[in-house]
Nucleic acid binder design. Structure first.
Length: 659
RNA sequence: GCGCCCGUAGCUCAGCUGGAUAGAGCGCUUGCCUCCGGAGCAAGAGGUCGCAGGUUCGAAUCCUGCCGGGCGUACCA
């Protein structure tokens, strides 16, 4: 509704300016900070003043005087040094909102969102939660905008990290494949949490450069790559079991996936081999014959826009400058780097890997509605078609920008400029630990670390907060609160409510920061249920719901007040401001989609909740004697609830029945 | 060295394409439950928007240079 009005006003002003002054001026509309300045304003006359050589106020006066009526706009006025302020036809606006009028979205092309991507060798931590929440929210936003979206979670099941844990099982614990599988099945053991400690343990050994350990690791890597032998069997058991743990953890906060592409299939099905041929054929990479990277296939730095990093290696004659920024794609031993595999994978996502595709099987044989996982052979006949998108969003933290640049540049250099342009690195800053958080976790910090504002999470060091632990803590904290408020409910009901509150608190926390803000994680902030938090927003929705329930018409059709009734009662400025505050979701969604900033949705939800809570406090709805006014108030409560629900759905924040 | 990001209230952060008197939460001070649930509402104190130039009718926002901090720049992922 708001979008529609903006469009009408913008176009009306633009065509009128063109007709009146013969200038094609882009009309910028903004929502005034002060209510007294109207519902929409434009500073367009300041820009016109320059080219027309007239004072902005005079131009504004001219425009306002003979602009034909704009549907939905009641009045225009000149204000300040030359602003034009517009006021809406309040009755028509509210009526339109209640009818759910909106701009339709056209047919949109398929997008792939890849997120989560946790190495399957240990439990998920808070950094992974930020990734998953951002990714999942992006998915919800794109879908709300009418975009078909496929969600992928890439599983690096043959990499060093899995190899490290396999090595630890074999040599530190002396366990064979059957024993590891038994451990993974043991209901009393959180397998991913077990591996968290095991991984930290063997990492310490590697860090000490223990020669035996390094030899074990090499042996394991080879075994994983070949896919044969007991080490490979342990590797598969570890990776599959941990992926199941990750899916369970993410399932707790409402995050799910369509397909899990695995690195083992990228290798087995020779996706890389195919991409390698393309890269060679189109001279995107070259075989280095001398220097530091002799024997490697490298991508020249210029291809991905990195400045060739020249460092003087000799006496500085200028002739023996070494270019160091070239990126190795294939190592001198012939194995492919991670980027290489990522290039192949990215090509497949766009349907550019001719003749290559995965086969798919349900990840859990018993669960047909769960995600599909890639297999090399023997896939299901009824698997959907995956891949082949026209736009790809890779949700990965900002530290991987360099590698993402290389992937994007490869597509460009291979002759796929459109796909390169539509390869979006949806980046975000890391979640680190605040000094206080480290103290609470009993982590000892070095002098250098103590002087910093935050400490980086490190899976290798076992330094971090596990996702499940944080969730458990949130649930138990919420449960105490719920139980103290609801003596009438049994424990299971309280638990269910506490879980929804915990999810809301967590997801809102991860979304309220803009993407390039480093989150210095702090338990006190993350566990807060008051102020700008998920539970605050949830509470506003619960209040709205309670009013509607008690009004006597919980689910039946609400009596719709007439336009005149709206117009009359919305003369109350406070009520009108509330209606405006709870009608922003659509324009917020469009704006957040364009800027790729889910935090805007969170902010809008908080502001809508704030506006509603204020209204709730000063207006008694159910005791209102004037039935006409009561109907209008109830209709506004309905609008507020719908708006809050819409915004919370975008964020994946549950809307509890009560709390 | 090179590349990217950040610096706004005591703390944590918003501030959309430059626009009217720079906003919120927390913390602090003070009010508010005979009425739809107080996870709430209202009010107050608190800011040379890192510094210096520049562009502009107008700069927290754009440009340049400094200062301070972070992250990249692996034949790890």
């Amino acid at each position: 509704m708001l979008l529609r009005l903006e469009k009408h006003l913008r176009e009306a002003l633009r065509t009128h300016i063109a007709k009146r002054f013969g200038v094609d001026e882009d009309v910028v509309l903004e929502q005034p900070k002060q209510a007294g300045h109207g519902d929409l304003a434009t500073p367009v006359c300041f820009g016109l003043a320059r080219s027309l050589r007239r004072p902005p106020r005079m131009i504004a006066a001219d425009l306002v005087a003979d602009l034909p009526p704009v549907p939905g706009i009641e009045s225009l006025e000149v204000a300040g040094a030359g602003y034009i302020n517009a006021r809406f036809d309040r009755g028509a606006y509210a009526e339109g909102l209640l009818a759910g009028e909106d701009e339709p979205c056209g047919e949109l092309s398929k997008a792939i969102v890849e997120h989560t991507n946790i190495n399957p060798n240990k439990a998920a931590h808070i950094g992974h939660l930020r990734n998953a929440v951002l990714g999942d929210t992006l998915v919800r936003m794109l879908r709300a905008l009418g975009r078909p979206v496929e969600v992928q979670n890439y599983i690096d099941n043959t990499g060093v990290q899995v190899a490290d844990v396999v090595t630890a099982f074999r040599h530190l614990r002396g366990m064979g494949a059957e024993q590891v599988k038994a451990l993974a099945r043991d209901p009393d053991v959180a397998f991913d949490h077990y591996c968290w400690d095991l991984y930290a343990e063997i990492s310490r050994l590697f860090a000490s450069k223990d020669p035996a350990a390094l030899a074990w690791r090499g042996e394991t890597l080879k075994a994983l790559e070949s896919g044969e032998g007991e080490l490979a069997e342990i590797g598969a058991a570890v990776a599959d079991s941990i992926v199941a743990c990750h899916l369970a953890t993410m399932g707790r906060i409402g995050v799910s996936y369509d397909v899990l592409p695995r690195e083992s299939e990228i290798l087995n099905l020779r996706f890389w081999a195919s991409a390698f041929e393309m890269l060679k054929a189109r001279n995107v990479i070259r075989l280095e014959t001398s220097g530091r990277t002799a024997g490697c296939w490298v991508m020249p730095a210029a291809t991905f826009g990195a400045a060739p990093n020249r460092r003087e290696s000799g006496q500085g004659t200028g002739s023996d400058l070494e270019v160091e920024a070239d990126k190795v794609i294939v190592r001198s031993d012939g194995t492919v780097t991670y980027v290489g595999k990522d290039i192949a994978y990215q090509l497949w996502k766009f349907g550019l890997l001719e003749g290559k595709d995965f086969e798919y099987a349900p990840f859990r044989a018993s669960d047909a509605s769960g995600p599909w996982v890639t297999t090399a052979e023997g896939g299901s006949e009824c698997a959907p078609q995956f891949g082949g998108a026209s736009e790809v969003f890779n949700v990965i933290d900002v530290r991987q920008s360099y590698l993402q640049d290389v992937v994007r540049a490869s597509l460009q250099a291979l002759g796929f400029p459109e796909q390169a342009q539509r390869s979006v690195h949806f980046s975000y800053e890391m979640v680190a630990l605040s000094p206080r958080c480290c103290a609470e976790l009993g982590i000892e910090l070095s002098k250098k670390e103590r002087s910093r504002p935050y400490v980086e999470v490190s899976g290798r060091k076992g330094l971090g907060v596990k996702a499940d632990d944080l969730l458990d803590l949130l649930v138990s904290t919420a449960l105490q609160e719920v139980e103290s408020r609801h003596e009438d409910l049994d424990r299971a009901e309280c638990w269910a409510i506490a879980e929804r509150i915990a999810i809301g608190a967590l997801r809102y926390f991860m979304l309220r920061f803009t993407r390039n803000t480093v989150i210095a994680f702090d338990f006190q902030e993350a566990l807060a249920f008051e102020g700008e938090t998920g539970p605050y927003v949830q509470y506003a929705a619960v209040r709205a719901r309670n009013i509607l329930r008690k009004s006597g018409q919980p689910c039946g059709p609400d009596p719709k007040p007439s336009r005149e009734a709206f117009a009359r009662h919305l003369q109350d400025e406070q009520l009108w401001q509330l209606v405006l505050a709870v009608s922003q979701s659509r324009s917020t969604l469009v704006r957040a989609g364009q800027s790729g900033e889910p935090a805007q949705v969170a902010r809008n939800a908080f502001q809508a909740a704030q506006a509603f809570n204020n209204f709730y406090h000063q207006t008694h709805i159910l005791t209102e004697k004037d039935t006409g006014r009561r109907a209008v108030l109830l209709a506004i409560v309905r609008l507020a609830l719908d708006e809050l629900t819409c915004l919370m759905d975008l964020m994946g924040v549950p809307v509890p029945e009560r709390m």
